[in-house]
């Protein structure tokens, strides 16, 4: 039985579990970072989980996904194993990028997950090109490209949107507008702060959606994905959201007020969705508790896998600078 939001208990449970897993996985990551198990940059998505969840649930496995360096949640939503992601963050060769990428560079070609891209806006032209290939090869998959509002100030955002529209290729641009490009607020970086106004300049249909509400996101994502798939043309969906944690683990958050963070935390998408499911009888309290338990097992399993993982031999350092079979 599906309710008016097209949710049945099975899907409801899956989505709630997914968001809880994202949250818990990252809380655990932060803890492991302080223990120096995870090093380098670690960018947490906490607070923004509804966006990756809402968009990726609308996709087919053959659709291509490109994300930013804040992409643990996207990889989880795409079905990359939590242990494999954790191993990657440990730098172990059991990780999805052989341990070479770390937190910012999760790749899983088999799952059509193309990163993990840490040059802001650098992956937007790639997304347009991948969609161009789908069009040329007459495949019916689409490409989805996540980026922050900071990326929309880069030239490559504008070039990629123009090319995608000019070529009429099936790409969904998803702007995760969390209001801060690192520590600089939207109002200091964009003359026009409604990112959705930038799509129509290139002839791209654009829409803004509440990025803290999974139901609204699912509705917007389903529509956007369906439109990209049927029209073969690009679409820009701006998800207005907020990260509850610092930009990275090095960030003292001098640029924003604690009360602002507290205010946004009241809109936390996870309790909101849970409450809705309980109210609609799509899930029971007992089931929620069971999920919490399963969650702990899952996280522990992931950490165990990472801990048991092995280091790539130093002798392999230069492997894959070039392909191992130079002429295909």
């Amino acid at each position: 039985m599906k309710n008016k939001n097209n949710l049945d208990p099975e899907k409801a449970e899956k989505l709630l579990f997914q968001m809880l897993l994202m949250r818990k996985f990252e809380e655990k990551s932060a803890e492991l970072y302080t223990k120096e198990k995870i090093r380098g940059f670690l960018h947490l998505y906490i607070g923004e989980e509804a966006v990756a969840t809402g968009i990726i649930q609308a996709l087919k496995p053959e659709d291509y996904i490109l994300a930013t360096y804040r992409e643990h949640a996207h990889a989880l939503a795409r079905g990359v194993d939590a242990g494999v992601i954790m191993a990657e963050m440990y730098g172990k060769q059991e990780g999805c990028s052989r341990g070479r990428g770390g937190s910012m560079h999760l790749f899983d070609k088999e799952k059509n997950f193309f990163g993990g891209n840490a040059i802001v806006s650098g992956h937007l032209p790639l997304a347009t090109g991948m969609a161009l290939a789908s069009k040329k090869l007459k495949r019916d998959n689409i490409t989805v490209c996540f980026f922050g509002e900071g990326a929309a100030a880069e030239g490559e955002f504008h070039e990629a949107l123009n090319l995608a529209s000019l070529w009429k290729v099936p790409v969904l641009f998803v702007c995760e507008n969390n209001l801060y490009a690192m520590g600089t607020a939207l109002r200091y970086t964009h003359a026009v702060q409604e990112i959705e106004k930038k799509g129509p300049a290139y002839g791209i249909e654009s829409k803004a959606v509440d990025g803290m509400d999974l139901l609204k996101l699912m509705e917007a994502a389903n529509k956007a994905v369906e439109q990209v798939r049927s029209s073969g043309e690009p679409y820009l969906l701006v998800c207005n959201t907020y990260r509850f944690r610092a930009h990275s683990m090095f960030d003292a958050e001098l640029y924003r007020d604690k009360t602002e963070v507290e205010k946004w935390k009241k809109r936390d998408p996870i309790p909101k969705f849970r409450k809705y499911l309980l109210k609609e009888n799509l899930i029971s309290e007992a089931k929620v508790q069971e999920l919490e338990k399963r969650l702990n097992t899952e996280i522990q399993k992931a950490v165990d896998l990472a801990e048991a993982g092995t280091w790539e031999a130093k002798e392999e350092l230069t492997r894959f600078v070039y392909s191992e079979n130079p002429v295909s």
């Binding site: 790639l126 090109g129 090869l137 030239g155």
Partner: peptide, 20 residues
């Protein structure tokens, strides 16, 4: 292509990733 070297070179790279 338009004068957007970063855009179309990036798109070429993307197209090659996806089989072209």
């Amino acid at each position: 292509v338009p004068l957007s070297e970063s855009g179309f070179v990036g798109a070429g790279i993307g197209a090659s990733l996806a089989g072209m």
